[in-house]
Amino acid sequence: MTTPHVSPRLVALGAAAVLTVGAGACGSGEDEITLGLITKQEENPFFVTMREVAEDVADENDVNLLTAAGKSDVDNASQVRALAEMTRDGAEGIMIVPARSRAIVPAIETAREAGVIVVALDTPTQPRSAVEALYATNNRRAGNLIGRYAKAKAEEDGIEPRIAMLDLAPGISVGELRHEGFLTGFGIDDGDPEIVGSAYAQGDEDNARATMARLLDEDPGINIVYTINEPTAFGAIDALKEAGRDMDDVIIVSIDGSCDAIKNGVRTGEIDATSQQYPENMAREGLEAVAEAVRGGPSPSGFLDTGVELITADPVEGVESEDEAFGVRNCWGD
């Protein structure tokens, strides 16, 4: 029996190829570290996207990722407990989306005293210095984009602005920044005659429907509606339709960029424009920065803008925007 002759050179080349592929398959080769991600809740697709992206990025960066979430948007107790448990379980860095910006600070301080690097995602702590850094949407810019769009669209359509503002709630910085941004973008101030109605809808669709109906009772001529988020926009749209308004005569602008709103609001033209924010950028940038710091790199600091784009199916001249296809490709949720 003869043995087939195999060139040693060929064997070496083959082995090198296998080793290269094998090394590539085993990740980046760095020591594994443990990090934590705490979101507000698991129902909201915004936070689901954030967690899923964080898990993918963790895999790519040899990070053992611990995750936890509260039971609602205001569940501080669960977040305090998660911070303590993750610190005990050896997390060297934690990313948190604070449910209660002020109430969470003592628990963060305890974790930081134990040597844990803590950064905030999406929502700032109060004070901001309670964490190393904040990775979030520039909410003022998000509001500014839809303000500029609404003004240009009103001019294009030749309508006299009669604006209704459906805000979040008193004293919440996200809502205040978006509100201010819209006014700046539109070129008006609080109290100007263009604003014919303003109310807090709590970011909730049902509240928004009732609030918008009330504002329409007060002024049936409302033709521009600013909404703090997309559930609010859908509530306002319902109220406008119930009032018999032709949606082509009303400009509705919003902020968020969920798949539901892009597909069922922007694409149909009922929401004229929305500022889309990117939870995937918050998760990826936050995790990579914290992992780098834990491995001896520079510590994250300050505010990192995670991006915002104006999405509309009806672009106007002078305001940069992306189309609804871009919005669908980059939206979050189903």
Binding site: Y278, R284, E285, L304, T306, G307, V308, E309, R329, N330
Partner: peptide, 8 residues
């Protein structure tokens, strides 16, 4: 590279 990532 995702388009969302490119925005920043």
């Amino acid at each position: 590279t995702s388009e969302a990532e490119k925005t920043i």
